[in-house]
Design a protein around this nucleic acid. Structure first.
Lengths: 358, 358
DNA sequence: TTTGTTTAATTGTCTATACAAATATACAAA
DNA sequence: TTTGTATATTTGTATAGACAATTAAACAAA
């Protein structure tokens, strides 16, 4: 029985629902002709006008198309997926650190296939990321590249889930979020940190300080790499040489660390700065204290932001490529080419300049 | 007579057209109640079912809304303009110079009113700008912020006209294009250059070199400001102290200029670098030649990109604000608040650091 | 004062019927 | 072969009338 006449649901609506069901279950396939109004009137026992009302609604909704003399036909329902050519990118701040490089890599790759990139600055704050997430969803983006914020893992997970609920694929860039089955593009921070620490050790340094934030997965991995290298080379890990902050990057905090380290020295001959922007602060601090790098102290960074005024030895991260790979991944996910979640780990390499003395 | 019964145009359609006319001419205003179906049947002489057909179509088209017992009401027809919330920004390279700051200002301002920003890198090339322009038009952007490329004025004009033809408002940021009646947000480069040159003169410098590109309107204006200051202070303009390039920014070229200037000195005591990135190259060059700034030579820049490693005296350009103002301007143009084209000239100010000695 | 009931106005749903318009198809005429 | 004509089929437009559902507003009861 197609129509329940005792139901309070309008009969034209019941018919409409039934027709949609038939279409979605493939009983009526795209370009099939459905029964004529007269036939449907016979089948359902409704008046032709009622049949027409149901059918007209489905025409308005894009399910059907009618042709005089010929009948009513099922349309291809693939109008939904047409304009999803916009990708969102959620980065901390387009002015700072590696964000410009990452954005450029992503944008170049997007442009190659005529996709567009919407820029969102989170300032590493959950609230801003959340705000932008809603905006991107409103804009009907096809996918999102997300650099997790400095908020808790739970909160970052919330952001990701917001997209996933709307069927918008997400790729995490640089930083990971535990227990989340989602694509990730990053570099091998453990390995990179191991290598650069090893480099300092082989240059003869024994008292190597490190300063970074424990807030981000990337920097935590670097700390582990540092420890592993020391252990492997049988150098005791001295907790007083590990200066960690547990907040987002804060110039004042690290400048203080730098001053502390450079003043009381404590036999430290080299510093592993958690990333280049920290390293740069060591140059400022050294400058203020009348010390010079590398003569008075050696320093290495991480990232390889191209500073033209200082010759920092650092671990080059392929940030541009990270942007590219993230975009490629998001696009193959949009096109449905891949199903399982994927991790792309890019290789970093050491760039030897003039901030380390034996 | 509302309905012409002899016309081949369906009567429900005639009624529909008439109703739309009444609404658009303001006879029925938003939230007004239109006559009831029964009344319309009386007025037009049509059957109620025919009236209903016309009205139902207008409901589907978003002109009307119906409430049982209450009647049928005119809706606000502002649904068309709601989706044009995406703005494009065409900048040279998000990784370089003031681009990140400009993009951030624009993005923050866009986010305030829930607009989104699509990022496009032109690398100062016409072809890339043109490619992105087509893409932005495809994406149905509501407006565009455009930093003209290093191509000819004609070519930049072509880009702008491409948007204008599609009724997409354009705001030029930073650089202007002659003979084009379009919004512009920039800073007073002539005035800024005059001020910073005056500053050098008042510090006692007489032999002041300048090096910049003549390709961009901004830098040309700076050159004029420089000349004007010299003239006003009765210092002869020495063409050998004016090193200009007529191409886009090219590190090698300017590094060569820097070397030339620093080596043969020629009594030059101060250099006005066309912008901060050029100034930075002077630091590199000085470093390589074993000279120090400001002891051996004074230098000033233009832009105030915040370099943490050098203490450059420079002219601060309100780039962030330029991004903000550009976005505000584009939004008021989208909403149709303003008609005539508008120029917003922001003020720069001198930031005195330690790169100039008396 | 609050809550429930009635009433009247208006849109919502539905039936039955008729003729108009478009057009694929077959067939006839030039 | 081409062109015109008739025919059948199906959707498109239109009418008249009936009853259902919703709800603002007035009124009644607790």
């Amino acid at each position: 029985m197609i129509i329940d006449r005792s139901s309070p649901i309008p009969q034209y609506f019941q018919l409409q629902t039934w027709l949609i069901e038939q279409i979605e279950q493939g009983v009526f396939k795209p370009s099939d002709k459905i029964p004529t109004e007269e036939e449907l009137a016979q089948i359902t026992g409704l008046a032709r006008a009622t049949i027409r009302q149901a059918i007209q609604n489905l025409v308005n909704l894009g399910y059907l198309s009618r042709k005089r003399r010929l009948g009513t036909f099922v349309l291809n329902r693939e109008i939904e997926t047409d304009k999803r050519t916009i990708i969102g990118i959620l980065i901390p701040d387009i002015r700072r650190g590696y964000a410009p490089e990452l954005a450029r890599g992503a944008e170049d790759e997007a442009a190659r296939s005529k996709h567009s990139l919407i820029l969102c600055n989170t300032d590493d704050l959950f609230v801003k990321a959340d705000f932008h997430a809603d905006r991107l969803i409103d804009n009907n983006v096809g996918g999102v590249i997300f650099v997790p914020t400095a908020a808790s893992d739970e909160k970052n997970r919330l952001i990701v889930e917001k997209f996933i609920r709307k069927n918008i694929p997400v790729v995490l860039a640089d930083r990971s979020i535990p227990d989340l089955n989602v694509d990730l593009v990053t570099t091998d921070n453990f390995d990179g940190a191991y290598e650069i620490t090893k480099y300092l050790i082989l240059k003869g340094h024994q008292r190597i300080a490190i300063t970074l934030s424990t807030l981000f997965s990337t920097e935590r991995q670097r700390l582990e790499g540092y420890k592993k290298a020391l252990t492997n080379y049988k150098i005791p890990i001295d907790p007083t040489l590990i200066l960690t902050d547990n907040g987002p990057f804060n110039e004042k905090q690290y400048l203080k660390f730098a001053h502390t380290l450079l003043k009381q020295k404590n036999n430290v001959t080299a510093v592993f700065a958690g990333h280049d922007r920290i390293a740069l602060l060591f140059y400022s601090a050294a400058n203020q204290l009348g010390l010079s790098i590398p003569e008075d102290i050696s320093i290495v960074g991480y990232d390889d932001l191209h500073f033209t005024t200082v010759a920092l030895t650092t671990m080059h991260q392929p940030i541009y490529e990270m942007g590219q790979e993230s975009m490629r991944l998001i696009m193959s996910r949009i096109s449905g080419d891949i199903k399982e979640s994927k991790e792309i780990i890019l290789k970093s390499y050491l760039v030897e300049r003039c901030s380390v003395l034996p």
